[in-house]
Amino acid sequence: MIRSIACALLTLCLSASLALAAEMPLFNADGYRQTQYRSPTPHDAEGATTLDTPALQALLRDNPRTLLIDVYRQQWLNDRFIAEQPPHANLPGSTWLANVGDGHLEPLWQAYFEDNLNRLSEQRKDRPLVFYCKSDCWLSWNAIKRARTLGYNALYWYRDGIDAWHQAGLPLQPAQAVLP
Rank of each mutant, 00 (worst) to 15 (best):
L56R: 02
L59V: 09
L59W: 07
L60Q: 06
L60V: 04
R61V: 05
R61D: 12
N63C: 11
P64I: 14
R65C: 10
R65N: 15
T66K: 02
L67P: 03
D70K: 04
D70E: 11
V71Q: 00
Y72C: 13
Y72Q: 14
Q74L: 08
Q74S: 06
Q74P: 01
Q75N: 13
Q75Y: 08
L77P: 00
R80K: 15
I82W: 09
I82S: 12
I82M: 10
I82G: 10
I82P: 07
A83N: 13
E84I: 03
Q85K: 12
P86Y: 08
P87L: 14
P87I: 12
N90R: 05
L91M: 13
L91C: 10
P92C: 12
G93D: 08
S94T: 15
S94Y: 09
T95S: 13
W96T: 05
W96S: 06
L97Q: 01
L97E: 01
A98H: 08
N99I: 03
V100G: 00
V100P: 00
V100R: 00
G103P: 03
H104W: 10
H104M: 12
L105K: 02
L105Y: 00
E106A: 11
E106Y: 09
L108H: 07
L108Q: 13
W109N: 03
W109M: 06
Q110V: 07
A111S: 14
A111T: 13
Y112G: 00
Y112C: 01
Y112P: 01
Y112W: 03
F113P: 00
F113C: 00
F113D: 01
E114G: 04
D115W: 02
D115V: 02
D115T: 10
N116V: 00
L117A: 04
L117R: 04
L120Y: 04
D126V: 10
D126F: 09
D126M: 11
R127W: 07
P128A: 05
P128C: 06
L129Q: 09
L129E: 09
V130Q: 01
F131T: 05
F131W: 08
F131L: 11
F131V: 09
Y132P: 01
Y132A: 01
C133K: 06
C133P: 06
